[in-house]
Structures are given as C-alpha cells and as structure tokens.
Design a protein around this nucleic acid. Structure first.
Lengths: 213, 213
DNA sequence: TCGAACCAAATTGTTAACAATTTTTCACAA
DNA sequence: TTGTGAAAAATTGTTAACAATTTGGTTCGA
C-alpha cells in the first residue's frame, strides 16, 4: 500500500479543512494565487486540487471567473440525503451472501464504537458505517457516486444536531439496519433505511434551524 | 446566451468524439502531448479537458501514470441504467404542477420527432427525452448527478440494439410515461419507469451480445 | 531461460512568465 | 446622486521549459 505524496491531493484536503472550519465560507471565491502562496507552490497544483474538489461537489468552477465554494441550501442537502439512501438501497439488493467475514467484523466494530462515542466521533462513525455498508456490494459504480455525495454532506455535517437523544435514536436505527442485512432480511433493511432517511433529514433540518436562525 | 469558446471544453468534446468513434478504445491511455500536438496547444488545456471527462465518468486519471479511457462492463452499464431511473423517479416526486407550458411543448416535440426518427436520431431523442424529464424538477442536485451518468451511457449507446421492434416498444413506453406525468399520475409514471428500466437493460444486453459475440 | 539491475526514452508533474479576461476603481457627465 | 466609460488592478488562461517519475528494453549473472 504505497501512499506517495501527491501534491494536489494534499492541497485538496487542506481546502476541505478550510471549508469545514469555516475559513472558506460557501459562496466565496477560492483564489489560486493566494493558495499557491500559502503552500509555496505554483498555481498548477492548486488548479488540479480545485478540479478534484469540483468532482466531489465541494467546488464549482466557472470558466474565466474562478472557483467558488459550492453553496447548498436545505433542499439540496435533503436531496443529497435521499440520493445517498437510494444508492444504499440499490447496493443492498446486490449483496452476495455469505458476506465476507472481515467486512462483517469491521462494521460490528463501528457499531460497538458508536456506543461510547461523543458527538464529533459519532458523526465520523456514522459516515464510516454508511460507506462500509455501500462497499459491501463491491460495486464500483455505486462507490463512485457515493463518494461524490459524501463530500458535501460531510462538510456540512456540522449542521446536524447530534443531541444525546438524536444519537440514541440514530444508533438504534443503525443496529436494526445492520441486523437486517446480516440476517438477509432485505425488505426490512430497505424499510429501515427509508425510515432512517426521514429521521436523518429531520435531524439535519433541526440543526440548521438551530444554528442559522 | 454567450457561448464563448472555451478551449478545454472543445478539446473534451473532441475526445468524447474519439471515444464514441472508437479511435480511443476503453482501457487505452490518453497521452497529453499527442493530443496537444493535434490541437496545436500546450498540455495545460488538455489536462483540463481530461479532468472534465473524469468528472463525467469517461476518463480515469491515475496520478503519475496517466489518463485512461474508462472501461465499463455489462454489470456497470446496467447499474448506471438503474441509477438513472432511480434519479428520474426521485425527480418526478418533486414535480410542481402545473408544469411550465414551454417545457411541456419541448417534450411533446421530442415524442413527435421520435415517430419518424431513424436509429441514430432515436438514440439522441431518447437521451434528450430523459434529460428533459429530469429537468422538469428544476433540481440542481439531480441534474448534476444525471449529467455524470449520461456520458458513459451515451458513449456506449452504440451498443444498444435499436431494431424497429425495439424502437416501437421503447416509443410506446415513452408515450405512456409522458402521459402519466402530464396527468399527474405519479405512481403510474413510477411503474412505467421501472418497466422501462428492465426493457432498456434488456435491449442493452441484446446489443452487447450481438456486437461483441 | 529467468530475474535483477540498470540505462534510455517516454510521459507526467511543476514552475514561472506572459496573454487574455474579468473585476475594481475612479473621474466625469447627466 | 446616479450612471457611464475608461484606465488600472486582480485574476484566470496558456505556454514552454525543466524536473521527477514511470515505462520499456538491454545486459548481465545465476
């Protein structure tokens, strides 16, 4: 597993950090030269990073105008939620049983960790869980699309209201879902996911209300 | 409506042409300098074009190795079909009635043109139709994802077996779907789309069998 | 014959300068 | 005050040269 340093990739993840930490606010322009200076590189690698982030849906590039941090409204985020769940449902239909032992263990461990996680940790575990579920299908198309959905949702995760009650509820849903998948009760899994989508949207909207008005 | 020449965009569409016309076969490498020479530009714009096509799912870039024409197998194409239909179903649920008059007319005209289209024309009209249906929802998220699905499917459209009988069948499905949408019978529309997905897949696979052995 | 080490060629990555375009600023007139 | 237009500044687009890396082939030794 070689993970050679790829300059544009490093720059991209730094820009993501800046978005998550509100140093770059949605709608604002990302000026190539500014970033080039802070990284001590030329503008080339910055441009590449911006292209990558455009693919992930975090940046919007307008020819000859510049690159902007993409702005998502409530409706957009709910739609992303919905597409994510739809992809998960489709991928569950493609599962081949028996599921590989090592992947089962990985997901078991995520659920375990969720019990004792704090808010921030829970967000990360939550995303991990859904991604691992999707990867169970070993389907490149779904994985590919899923990764593009994830980025905006992760960047805006800070808006999700993770109260102890919400986390408790969410955890229960995850347990149910995982149990249904393991026992090959796919219709139940589908129903749980559809419920999870609704409650997820609700938590999302609650969080947005709280923090922006 | 200003459509200024954007070099990378032009190059990208030329590369798409080359893929469609089999000058670039799936799996082969796209060498930057080669294309730079044929266009009389430097490598910069070529790289941008390759990034664009990566976003559209036609090219896969591997750092320090190069850009390759992405290879899709049967299963991949069926999955893309399925995701496309799922997006259409989701977007139909978001329609706001009454539908705008001008868009209704546009789609009416596509259906009309389908009656007298030859095979090649029909493929294009078919894609147009589905895209216009999706655009009815005026939902940027769906449009965005849809455009990424379309490219690989269009590039491989040549595999779809468009016999007169198949076209006839497909046309009927489109009429049914459009009628259901206009009359706001969304459950029917959904059912028709699900059927259309199955028969579309079948035509696809028939075409692949025929042309590749 | 096979594999490892090495060299040369091909290719991608990066840079810095220049060109083209957009945005900002500001003077001026209605 | 407000709007217009032209310079100036800022920014993106493009280029060509150079650096770093990968690829392909060749030699050598076992």
């Amino acid at each position: 597993m070689r993970e050679k340093t790829h300059l544009p990739k490093m720059i991209a993840s730094q820009i993501v950090m800046d978005i998550v930490n509100n140093k770059l606010v949605p709608g604002s322009k990302v000026i190539e030269e500014k970033y080039a200076n802070t990284f001590g590189t030329s503008r080339g690698p910055i441009r590449e990073a911006l292209y990558m982030l455009e693919t992930e849906g975090l940046i919007e590039r307008i020819p000859k105008r510049g690159a902007f941090v993409k702005k998502y409204n409530k409706q957009d985020l709910c739609d992303l939620f919905e597409v994510r769940i739809a992809l998960e449902i489709m991928s569950i239909r493609r599962l081949k049983y028996p599921l590989p032992e090592n992947k089962i263990n990985e997901i078991d461990r995520i659920i375990e960790a969720m019990y004792t996680a704090n808010q921030e940790e829970y967000s990360i575990l939550n995303n991990d869980f859904h991604y691992k579920i999707l990867c169970l299908s070993e389907n490149e198309i779904f994985k590919n699309f899923y990764s593009r959905l994830g980025a905006p949702l992760i960047a805006l995760q800070k808006f999700v209201l993770e109260t102890p009650e919400n986390i408790q509820h969410s955890l229960q849903e995850h347990q149910l879902l995982w149990k249904a998948i393991k026992e090959r009760k796919l219709n139940i899994a589908k129903a749980v996911l559809e419920d999870h989508m609704e409650s997820g949207k609700k938590r999302f909207l609650m969080g947005i209300e709280k923090k922006t008005g």
